[in-house]
Computed example of a mutant assay.
Amino acid sequence: MSERVVVLGAGYAGLAAAKLAARWTGAQVTLVNERDRFVQRVRLHQLAAGQSERRLPLRDLLAGTGVELVVGRAEAIDLGAREVRVGDRALPYDRLVYALGSGVDPGSTPGVAEHAHSVVDAESAERLHRALSGGGSGAPTGRRSVVVVGGGLTGVETAAELAEAGHSVALLSAGALGAGLSPKAVRHLHRAFARLGVRVREGCRVESVDERGVRVDGVREAADAVVWTAGFRVPPLARESGLAVDASGRLLVDGAMRSTSHPEVIGVGDAAAMRRADGQEMRMACATAGPNAQRAIRALAEELAGAEPTPTRFRYAGQCVSLGRRDAVLQFVHPDDTPRDLVLTGRAAALAKEAIIAYTVAFQRRPTLPSGA
Rank of each mutant, 00 (worst) to 15 (best):
M1Q: 12
R4A: 14
R4N: 11
V6W: 13
V6T: 08
G11Q: 01
Y12M: 07
A17Y: 00
K19C: 05
W24P: 02
Q28A: 14
Q28V: 06
Q28C: 08
V29T: 00
L31K: 00
R35A: 11
D36F: 05
D36I: 10
F38Y: 15
Q40K: 07
V42Y: 05
H45C: 03
Q46I: 01
G50K: 07
Q51F: 13
R54E: 14
R55Q: 14
L61G: 11
E68H: 12
V71P: 09
G72D: 01
R73N: 10
E75D: 15
A81V: 06
E83T: 15
V86L: 07
G87S: 09
A90D: 00
Y93M: 01
D94Q: 03
G103A: 15
V104H: 11
P106M: 03
P110F: 00
A122F: 06
E123P: 02
E126G: 08
R127W: 10
S133P: 02
G134L: 13
G138I: 01
T141M: 08
G142K: 06
V147P: 06
V148H: 11
V149M: 08
G150C: 03
G151E: 02
L153K: 01
V156P: 08
A159S: 15
A165D: 05
G166N: 05
G166D: 09
G166A: 11
H167S: 01
S173Y: 01
G175P: 09
A176I: 03
G178W: 05
G180P: 09
P183L: 13
K184Q: 15
R195T: 14
R195W: 10
R201W: 11
E202S: 06
E202V: 07
E202G: 07
G203P: 09
C204S: 10
C204H: 03
R205K: 06
V209E: 02
V209Y: 15
D210Q: 09
E211Q: 10
R212F: 08
R212I: 01
R220T: 15
E221A: 12
A222I: 02
A225W: 03
V226R: 07
V227M: 13
V227D: 05
A230M: 06
R233Y: 00
V234I: 11
A238M: 08
E240F: 02
A244L: 05
A247G: 11
R250D: 00
L251V: 00
L251D: 01
G255D: 10
M257V: 08
R258C: 08
R258Y: 12
R258P: 07
T260H: 03
S261Y: 00
G267P: 05
V268Y: 04
G269Q: 00
G269S: 01
M274H: 09
A277M: 04
Q280P: 05
M284T: 00
A285Y: 02
A285H: 15
A289P: 10
G290P: 02
P291C: 09
R295H: 15
A299H: 10
L304D: 09
A307R: 15
P309V: 08
P309D: 11
P309T: 08
P309M: 12
T312W: 11
F314V: 04
R315V: 09
G318Q: 11
C320E: 02
G324I: 11
G324K: 09
R325V: 14
V329K: 02
T338N: 05
T338E: 14
T345N: 07
A350F: 13
A352K: 03
A355C: 07
A355L: 13
V361G: 07
A362F: 09
F363C: 04
R365K: 14
R365C: 13
L369Q: 12
L369M: 13
P370G: 06
